[in-house]
Nucleic acid binder design. Structure first.
Lengths: 125, 125
DNA sequence: ATCATATCTCAATATCAATTGAAACGTTGA
DNA sequence: TCAACGTTTCAATTGATATTGAGATATGAT
């Protein structure tokens, strides 16, 4: 992931609605969910607003779309998120490995579905 | 790190000049560097432009400042970056641990000063 | 074909972010 | 005290981003 891609990803995630969309789609899993359902989950946002933000995210490479009947299904691009994490870690550790110890520990302790709280604790310690 | 903080951090990093500042300050280490020197490194950006971006980053909690003589020294807040990584990983792994495997592997393989290339390779695999 | 559904596109507007240049502020040394 | 330095603050301008509502497009059912 180069700087340009990272900038696009950060811009995508720097907006409340979009950050929520990404979180929702990650939780939704690889099958994703249709644009309408996402709008529903966002508290009934207008379709054009959804379209705008979804297009923004797709442009940034954070989500992808496919048509299924008359719905358009959006799903998270996990690799893009992984790459972004790697990009951040690279900066964070570059020349100063010790500063990332907390985050690394949080991850090594088990990246399991129910390990969210544990991870937060360690990361904040 | 809550959603609001994460949004502020992403917004901070979504701008080319600011992303470069953060990278520079991480490399500079805990002692940081004066605003003027940062501007130098940015290719001679105007002082007010630097001040604008540095204030933005400080507001987002990504850098801190202290006065030393007539200079103001900025330094990276490593914890904020670690928290951001943890935030991303939490979303990324939530309910779907397997998707973060590449990033985790990249980190576990050694977060050392010279492991940048290795990390990229693994993350992109 | 026609209609209803799901989503997108477009134009208009409102809001926010970035850059510039001038001026103000605090600090140091003569 | 004064002048020079490093940095911030402010006002003005420009450009980018977000939201809304109306209309267009594509799909599936009758």
């Amino acid at each position: 992931m180069d700087e340009t891609q990272a900038l696009a990803a950060f811009a995508g995630l720097s907006q409340e609605t979009r950050l929520r969309i990404v979180r929702l789609l990650v939780q939704a899993g690889p099958d994703g969910m249709p644009a309408g359902a996402i709008g529903e989950a966002m508290g009934g946002a207008s379709s054009s607003r959804m379209s705008f933000h979804l297009a923004h995210l797709e442009q940034a490479g954070l989500v992808r779309s496919r048509r299924d009947g008359r719905s358009i299904i959006y799903s998270a691009v996990y690799g893009a998120l992984s790459d972004l994490v790697a990009f951040l870690m690279r900066d964070c550790c570059s020349g100063h490995p010790e500063v990332c110890a907390p985050a690394v520990a949080a991850l090594s302790c088990g990246c399991a579905p129910d390990s969210q709280d544990t991870m937060s604790e360690v990361a904040h310690a």
